[in-house]
Amino acid sequence: MAGSVYYDEKLSGKRLERCYRIASPRVEQYLKAEIRHVLDRIRPTDAVLELGCGYGRVTTRLAKAARRTVGIDSAAGNIAYARSLDSEESCEFLIMDALALGFPDKAFDVVVCIQNGICAFNVDRQALVLEALRVARRGGIVLFSSYSDRFWPHRLAWFEAQSAEGLVGPIDYAASKNGSIVCTDGFRAGRMTPGDFSELCAALGVRFTTCEIDDSAVFCEIAN
């Protein structure tokens, strides 16, 4: 089952929120480190777009640092739940396909796709990057993140906990290797290494940098 379809049908709204509520202290550390890294790249005057916003876990945090914050997700359940949680209406939440964004060119200063969305969406990665760049302003940036190989034991344990709660299917341990988590119900998500990001960006001819934070996340920052 394609990643985006899986989330749309099986892992949206409160079920997705539950995945984060059962995270171990080490996973919570990683999640906070990701957000801190993104916040360090945002200015108060920026318009920010998050791709694959889920129930708004990250989007609402980014809204505290930016002039305008928009979160898009293909799952209607996620967007409905995100809107219900955003009591201050600090963000705009829209149902939208990350490969066909309904925004004009150069609409945002920062475009964010973290928590391994580049793999979890299970879409053409070059097309995803190009569409993100299309809506980024000249001088703006696009941020993608994936998992560090150093984080593998913690990531696997987190998915084991999700499986135990019935949020995802049983782990297919024979197939879950080389940075990929595979479940018997069709869930599958790999990861991007710094080399993978370099290869992708080189193929597109874009300027980029990569870094690893917290021994858990690999970031790729693309300059527009």
Results as ranks from 00 to 15, higher is better:
residue 106 K to C: 09
residue 209 T to E: 15
residue 116 N to M: 07
residue 141 I to M: 14
residue 160 E to N: 12
residue 4 S to M: 10
residue 221 E to K: 10
residue 36 R to Y: 08
residue 200 L to V: 02
residue 14 K to C: 03
residue 202 A to R: 10
residue 4 S to V: 12
residue 119 C to Y: 00
residue 79 I to H: 09
residue 52 G to C: 06
residue 167 L to N: 07
residue 181 I to C: 12
residue 207 R to Y: 11
residue 100 A to C: 11
residue 210 T to D: 03
residue 20 Y to R: 01
residue 134 R to N: 04
residue 147 Y to K: 15
residue 91 C to F: 09
residue 170 P to F: 09
residue 124 D to S: 08
residue 168 V to K: 03
residue 85 L to W: 06
residue 192 M to K: 09
residue 99 L to K: 00
residue 33 A to S: 15
residue 129 V to R: 01
residue 174 A to W: 09
residue 81 Y to W: 13
residue 86 D to L: 05
residue 109 D to I: 05
residue 54 G to F: 07
residue 216 S to F: 08
residue 18 R to A: 01
residue 199 E to V: 10
residue 16 L to T: 12
residue 148 S to K: 07
residue 105 D to Y: 11
residue 121 F to L: 06
residue 120 A to Y: 01
residue 168 V to N: 06
residue 141 I to N: 13
residue 80 A to G: 04
residue 151 F to A: 15
residue 209 T to N: 13
residue 23 A to H: 02
residue 51 L to G: 11
residue 211 C to A: 14
residue 106 K to P: 04
residue 172 D to T: 03
residue 127 A to Y: 01
residue 79 I to T: 05
residue 176 S to W: 09
residue 2 A to Y: 13
residue 89 E to N: 15
residue 75 A to H: 10
residue 104 P to M: 00
residue 53 C to S: 15
residue 202 A to K: 08
residue 154 H to L: 07
residue 179 G to F: 04
residue 64 K to S: 12
residue 10 K to L: 14
residue 44 P to F: 06
residue 99 L to Y: 06
residue 185 D to M: 11
residue 110 V to K: 12
residue 81 Y to L: 13
residue 181 I to V: 15
residue 75 A to T: 09
residue 94 L to A: 09
residue 180 S to F: 14
residue 5 V to W: 02
residue 105 D to H: 12
residue 174 A to K: 06
residue 100 A to H: 15
residue 172 D to R: 06
residue 189 A to E: 04
residue 161 A to K: 07
residue 160 E to K: 13
residue 179 G to V: 03
residue 34 E to A: 09
residue 112 V to S: 12
residue 19 C to Y: 00
residue 166 G to S: 05
residue 149 D to T: 08
residue 105 D to A: 14
residue 191 R to D: 00
residue 59 T to L: 08
residue 13 G to T: 01
residue 88 E to R: 08
residue 120 A to V: 08
residue 8 D to E: 14
residue 142 V to I: 00
residue 199 E to A: 14
residue 110 V to M: 03
residue 38 V to I: 08
residue 90 S to F: 04
residue 53 C to R: 08
residue 107 A to N: 06
residue 11 L to A: 05
residue 131 E to V: 14
residue 48 V to F: 13
residue 176 S to K: 09
residue 39 L to A: 14
residue 119 C to R: 08
residue 99 L to G: 08
residue 91 C to H: 03
residue 16 L to A: 07
residue 54 G to L: 08
residue 22 I to G: 00
residue 195 G to W: 03
residue 151 F to T: 07
residue 18 R to Q: 01
residue 131 E to C: 04
residue 207 R to S: 13
residue 73 D to Y: 02
residue 82 A to P: 01
residue 203 A to I: 04
residue 7 Y to N: 03
residue 154 H to C: 11
residue 2 A to L: 15
residue 216 S to A: 14
